[in-house]
């Protein structure tokens, strides 16, 4: 494997990992703070992408497209991301209020299947309202491909990685530097006692869902830019994999979820050239479709050796599951 080839895959893996990391954050926060598997999160990512599509089309209608546009495309993109994050946060809040809060004292399994059901409801409502056909995401910024010494990189890839890292850093700052962040960390530390000292559980829960959903919306729009075909089931398998990243990162660790997300992207992408090398060395005939099988076997092995995730602390007394 030449260096160029490796770098090309590395860049692809960075972009792919960005999506996992952004979505994994939402899972990780809810899981850390409320000890809840929010299985609807993958579908909130899908809803975020569709809201982004609607907002982008509306903005493009207002400001015009092409040479007649009043503002450049990147400004529309920034506005789209911000407005969609705001709107999708409310979707998260509604999901929390309608589906999770009434079940807070129910058995954990009930809350987990609630997530699955909310996910199915979101998917099928999408089909109900939009008809289920694939939709094209508008390309708000012109795609440019740069050739740097045989490595191909696009302006969108650079932007996606930078925006993702910026959002993750912002969240990290929020959690470590603000009082609300401190409350969230405290809640993650002890779910039972912390509300007793006056930290409002419901407010923290709402905030957690809102932030997670907003990040998922950002991921959805960036996803739409990179993979411009949206379908109602786009969040399902993607959500599962991001969930793997969240658990792999370790409970209560924002950076853990981010790093695990990037790692997952890296393992998935690198498995394909890995298969090719294996094929060549041992003259085998393995198809690149075995990517996920191999990639997730590797993840399983990692988890066997680090059952609490990469950065998770062992916990026992407060285990509620």
């Amino acid at each position: 494997m030449s260096l160029n080839f490796f770098m090309q895959n590395l860049i692809n893996a960075l972009q792919w990992g960005s999506f996992y990391a952004l979505i994994a954050l939402g899972y990780s926060m809810v899981y850390s703070i409320l000890m809840l598997f929010n299985f609807a999160h993958g579908d909130i990512f899908m809803v975020g992408a569709y809201i982004g599509l609607g907002v982008a089309l509306l903005l493009l209608k207002i400001v015009g497209t092409g040479t007649a546009a009043l503002v450049p495309g990147w400004l529309v993109l920034v506005a789209t991301i911000l407005i969609s994050m705001f709107l999708t946060a409310f979707v998260g809040i509604i999901v929390e209020r309608v589906a999770y809060r009434p079940l807070r004292d129910a058995p954990r399994a009930s809350a987990a299947i609630t997530g699955l059901m909310v996910g199915i409801i979101l998917e099928t409502s999408n089909i109900l309202f939009l008809g289920g056909q694939r939709l094209a995401f508008p390309q708000l910024i012109q795609s440019q491909t740069y050739n740097i010494g045989g490595i191909f990189i696009t302006n969108k890839k650079i932007m996606i990685v930078i925006v993702s890292i910026a959002l993750m850093t912002a969240l990290h700052q929020f959690v470590t530097r603000t009082r609300w962040g401190m409350a969230m960390r405290a809640m993650a530390y002890d779910f039972v006692v912390v509300p007793l000292v006056g930290v409002p559980l419901n407010t923290i829960a709402v905030m957690t869902f809102a932030i997670g959903s907003a990040l998922a919306a950002a991921a959805g729009i960036l996803f739409g830019l990179a993979y411009p075909v949206l379908d109602p089931y786009m969040g399902v398998s993607f959500g599962w994999k991001a969930f793997v990243a969240a658990i792999l990162g370790g409970r209560g660790s924002i950076m853990g979820a981010c790093i695990a997300g990037f790692m997952l992207g890296f393992i998935e992408i690198m498995t394909v050239p890995g298969i090719q090398i294996l094929n060549r060395l041992f003259s085998l005939n393995i198809g690149s479709n075995l990517r996920d099988l191999i990639a997730y076997s590797i993840v399983l092995v990692i988890l066997v050796f680090r059952p609490h995730g990469l950065f998770g602390e062992p916990y026992s007394a407060k285990l509620r599951l």
């Binding site: 895959n9 050239p273 198809g287």
Partner: peptide, 21 residues
């Protein structure tokens, strides 16, 4: 290059890197 994927995959960058190479 005889590259495959499974239904529902969205990212083909790794396969495409193989194809380019």
């Amino acid at each position: 290059a005889f590259e495959s994927f499974t239904t529902g995959d969205k990212d083909f960058s790794a396969q495409m890197a193989n194809i380019v190479a």
